[in-house]
C-alpha cells in the first residue's frame, strides 16, 4: 500500500495554482488535507501525475463569524472551526455537524474546503452547506465566481468546480431567528460515514405552527439531497409527531434508489431516512420552541 510516483508542487499563489492545473489538465489533482486523497493514493486508486498542494497559499486559512454567518477559508482545518468558540456560540448546528466528521485526528488535518470539494454524499459538510444555503467562492483561469450550494453538488464525488478551478472559501449563513436545528445520522460505528443522515432546520410561528422547514438528507443518494416536497408538506402544519412522520415518509419515498453496499441496502437506507427525518424534525422543533 504505497502511492505510485507523482510530482508535487506547492504554489505560492492561487494564480500559480490554477496555472499548474491548466497546464497539467486532467493529470493534476489538488491536495488540501489529504484525508480522502492520500488513502486513495496509498491504494493506487488515484494516480495523478502532479499533486498541487494548496498549503502554502496565503489567506486560504481562517474562520470568521459575524451576524450574517460563518466565513471559512477552504484550507481551514475542520478542527479549527469545530474548536472556534465563536462558531460554537453562534452556529451550534455547524459545530455539531463538524463533530460528527470521522475523528479528531482526521479533523486536525482534514480541511473544510477539501471535504466540500471531494463531495462524498455521505459526508456531513456538504449536507450542512446545502441545508444552510452556503455559498462557495472559487478561483479559476477565468477569474473568481460564487456558486450557490444548490448548484454545487452535481453527482457522486463531482461538483460544479471546473477542472482548473479551486475552491477558496465557503460561507455558511446563520440560522434564522426562531428556528431550531438537528443533525442526525446512523453509522455502523461512531465516526464512520453515515448509512443515512438528516439535517433539519425548523422555524415556528408564534402560535406554534411550522413557519419554515429545511430538510437535507445525506448518505442516501449521489449527492446530499434536499427534500423539498417534504418541506412543503410541513409548512403551515402543526409541529407534531404526525406531521413529522408524514414528512419522513414523503422524504424517504421521494428518494431515488439509494446506494446498496456491504453495510446497508437501498431499502434500509430509505427506511433510515424516514426515521431520521422524523427524529430530526422533532428535535429541531423542540429547539425552535426554546429559541
Amino acid at each position: 500500500m504505497k502511492p505510485p510516483v507523482f510530482d508535487y508542487a506547492t504554489p505560492a499563489s492561487l494564480a500559480e495554482a490554477t496555472d499548474l492545473l491548466v497546464r497539467h489538465a486532467g493529470d493534476a489533482k489538488v491536495l488540501s488535507g489529504g484525508q480522502s486523497l492520500v488513502p486513495l493514493l496509498n491504494m493506487r486508486l488515484a494516480r495523478p501525475a502532479l499533486l498541487v498542494d494548496l498549503a502554502r497559499i496565503a489567506d486560504l486559512d481562517g474562520v470568521r463569524a459575524d451576524a450574517d454567518g460563518v466565513a471559512i477559508g477552504a484550507m481551514t482545518r475542520q478542527r479549527t472551526v469545530e474548536l472556534s468558540s465563536e462558531v460554537r456560540a453562534r452556529h451550534p448546528l455547524l459545530h455539531a455537524g463538524l463533530q460528527l466528521i470521522a475523528h479528531p485526528q482526521n479533523r486536525n488535518q482534514g480541511t473544510v474546503g477539501g471535504s466540500l470539494a471531494h463531495a462524498d454524499p455521505a459526508a456531513e459538510l456538504p449536507a450542512l452547506a446545502l441545508a444552510l444555503d452556503a455559498t462557495f467562492d472559487a478561483v479559476g483561469p477565468g477569474g473568481t465566481r460564487r456558486i450557490a450550494a444548490a448548484d454545487f453538488f452535481l453527482t457522486y464525488l463531482t461538483t460544479a468546480l471546473e477542472a482548473a478551478e479551486i475552491l477558496t472559501a465557503v460561507r455558511f449563513p446563520m440560522l434564522p431567528a426562531r428556528t431550531g436545528w438537528s443533525i442526525q445520522e446512523v453509522a455502523r460505528r461512531h465516526g464512520d460515514f453515515a448509512l443515512a443522515g438528516v439535517v433539519a432546520i425548523v422555524g415556528l410561528a408564534p402560535a406554534g405552527a411550522i413557519a419554515s422547514a429545511r430538510l437535507v438528507l445525506f448518505g442516501v443518494g449521489a449527492t446530499p439531497i434536499r427534500a423539498a416536497a417534504a418541506e412543503a408538506l410541513l409548512v403551515g402544519g402543526p409541529a407534531d409527531a404526525a406531521s413529522f412522520g408524514r414528512a419522513g415518509a414523503r422524504a424517504a419515498g421521494d428518494l431515488e434508489e439509494p446506494l446498496t453496499d456491504v453495510h446497508a441496502s437501498a431499502d434500509y437506507r430509505r427506511d433510515l431516512a424516514r426515521v431520521l427525518v422524523g427524529r430530526a424534525l422533532a428535535e429541531a422543533a423542540t429547539r425552535a420552541r426554546g429559541a
Binding site: 491504494m43 455502523r188 460505528r189 461512531h190 465516526g191 464512520d192 460515514f193 456491504v262 453495510h263
Partner: peptide, 27 residues
C-alpha cells in the same frame, strides 16, 4: 460488527478497515 463478506463469485467485499469493522471505544 465484524464480518468478512464475499459475494457469490468469491470477491471479497470487506477489504479495508472502512468495511471490516473493529470495535472502537464507543462500541
Amino acid at each position: 460488527l465484524e464480518e468478512a463478506v464475499y459475494d457469490e463469485d468469491g470477491q471479497l467485499r470487506t477489504s479495508t478497515f472502512m468495511d471490516y469493522l473493529l470495535p472502537t471505544i464507543y462500541e
